[in-house]
Nucleic acid binder design. Structure first.
Length: 442
RNA sequence: UCCCCGGUAGCUCAGCUGGUUAGAGCGGGUGGCUGUUAACCACUAGGUCGGGGGUUCGAAUCCCUCCCGGGGAGCCA
């Protein structure tokens, strides 16, 4: 018997097992806010209706004690949720002593130190339910479109996107290994075996970033498909994000409402999304006088017109997105600012066939993807240009040696997507146990 | 790595232009109340004012330094 099914049992006597979320005492009445993970319901203990011992137990029970409640379900407009339990019997399984998180305000440091308890609060539980919904929607969409889930390794021998952001560890007698920062290279090999694949798992970046958009451990889904071009992968990314948002609206409306999310804005997330090339985006930034902070060699800060060739930072992306009410894909970035494996645009060798999807409402970058370089010599050249150890990439070059085909893929960050859809400000609330620059516990 | 902000009761904060025994609300405890929604009322316990050093007759308050946290930049999903 769970709280979520309570409305089916009006007039009946039920037994609920769970925790005391809140208690109010009022003379001969005790109100208990009871939660069991599926929902919250109010239990009323009225002294004349129960034994002396039961009333005393209810009166003295503490927040987050585990309890068994037996009583009659009734509709009651004064109760939060519309239903309440008229208690006949009340048993304490375990009395919680000095539960630290009260219904009042707390600071982020305190809450994060108690993350193992913080997740019991209704707001955190709602966010984690939406997260589960986002993950379910992703698998639903990809499985339904013929993509095979194929997991990439987490322990890897080399870098994927450069060596500055890797967590390093010792791997027996074989030297250093690293925690994966992307499953993409393996996804490419899997796509050559299975056609359309996706990897889904945790990834790790040893970036020293301290913002509300960064975690050192985050989850990413990375679809990769043989014979897909940049255009194909952009269409698919739009399809998938539309599906995720509409799925969550359908299945987690209650949680989104509880979180205070503006649902009308999410309803608008329908294809087609906006699209512009990097070059068009630069023109827009210049026309709208969005400048770039630059440091001169003598350390002075100056403002300059946004130069073609520079990568966008968060301030530029935010300025660009203010005009849009749904996501926008920016494509064809300068080759210099992007990863070595991205294919050059045959129509403009200065740019690569890459794309980022930016979410509106300060959602930021949620997707990064590209068409991959499929020519053996060109790829080898890029690896050398980026000063990467060729021997580590021999297997990856093999993919261009034995039946190379055009292929594309992208990575979608789960936490950033959950952050955007729920509207929570900080990414630390979108994963059960966040890993950040200065925080690894609990 | 760099820039900005902060650290006072279990929690959230006030006090900080130096001056007696350091305050409030919440939470805890005790008592009161049959409808509370973060209840209310009364009483009560609770503090090396982040650590170290310095200035001073006197430091929570000023200075130095270290530690911890928050926000942002860069980098990225």
């Amino acid at each position: 018997m769970w709280v979520e099914h309570l409305s089916r049992y009006v007039g009946e006597t039920v037994t609920l097992r769970g925790w005391v979320y809140h208690r109010t005492r009022k003379g001969k009445l005790v109100f208990l806010r009871f939660r069991d993970g599926t929902g919250i319901c109010q239990c009323v203990v009225f002294k004349p209706n129960v034994s002396e011992e039961v009333f005393e137990r209810a009166r003295s029970v503490t927040q987050e004690s585990s309890v068994v409640v037996t009583g009659t379900v009734r509709e009651e407009s004064r109760a939060p949720g519309g239903y309440e339990i008229d208690v006949q019997d009340f048993e304490i399984l375990h009395l919680a002593v000095d539960y630290p998180i009260t219904p009042k305000e707390h600071g982020p440091d305190f809450l994060l130190k108690h993350r193992h308890l913080w997740i019991r609060s209704p707001r955190q539980a709602a966010i984690l339910r939406v997260r589960a919904g986002v993950e379910r929607a992703i698998r639903d969409f990809l499985d339904g479109n013929g993509f095979i889930e194929a997991d990439a390794p987490i322990l890897t021998p080399s870098a994927c996107e450069g060596t500055s952001t890797l967590f390093e560890l010792e791997y027996f007698d074989l030297g250093n290994a690293y925690l994966s920062q992307s499953g993409q290279l393996y996804a490419e090999a899997l796509a050559m075996a299975l056609g359309k694949v996706y990897t889904f798992g945790p990834t790790f970046r040893a970036e020293r970033s301290k913002t509300r958009r960064h975690l050192t451990e985050f989850w990413m889904v990375e679809p990769e498909a043989a014979f897909f071009t940049l255009e194909d992968i952009m269409d698919m990314a739009e399809d998938m994000v539309e599906y995720i948002v509409q799925y969550v609206l359908r299945h987690h409306r209650r949680e989104l409402e509880f979180l205070g999310r503006n649902l009308e804005k999410l309803e608008k997330v329908r294809r087609p999304f906006y699209r512009m090339s990097y070059t068009e985006a630069v023109e827009w930034l210049r026309q709208h006088d969005v400048k770039l902070h630059r440091k001169t060699p003598d350390g002075k800060e100056i403002l300059v017109d946004f130069p073609w060739g520079e990568d966008f930072g968060a301030p530029q992306e935010e300025a660009l997105m203010e005009q849009f009410d749904k996501p926008c894909i920016v494509h064809r970035y300068p080759a210099e600012v992007k990863a070595f494996y991205m294919k050059r645009d045959p129509e403009d060798p200065r740019v690569v066939l890459a794309m980022d999807m930016l979410a509106p409402e300060k959602g930021g970058e949620i997707i990064g993807g590209s068409q991959r370089e499929d020519d053996y010599e060109a790829l080898k050249q890029r690896i050398l240009e980026h000063n990467l150890p060729l021997e580590d990439f021999q297997w990856y070059l093999d993919l261009r040696k034995y039946g190379s085909v055009p292929h594309s893929g992208f990575g979608l960050g789960i936490e950033r997507t959950v952050r955007w859809i729920t509207g929570v400000e900080h990414i630390r609330e979108t994963i059960p146990f966040p890993r950040m620059l200065y925080r690894i516990e609990p």
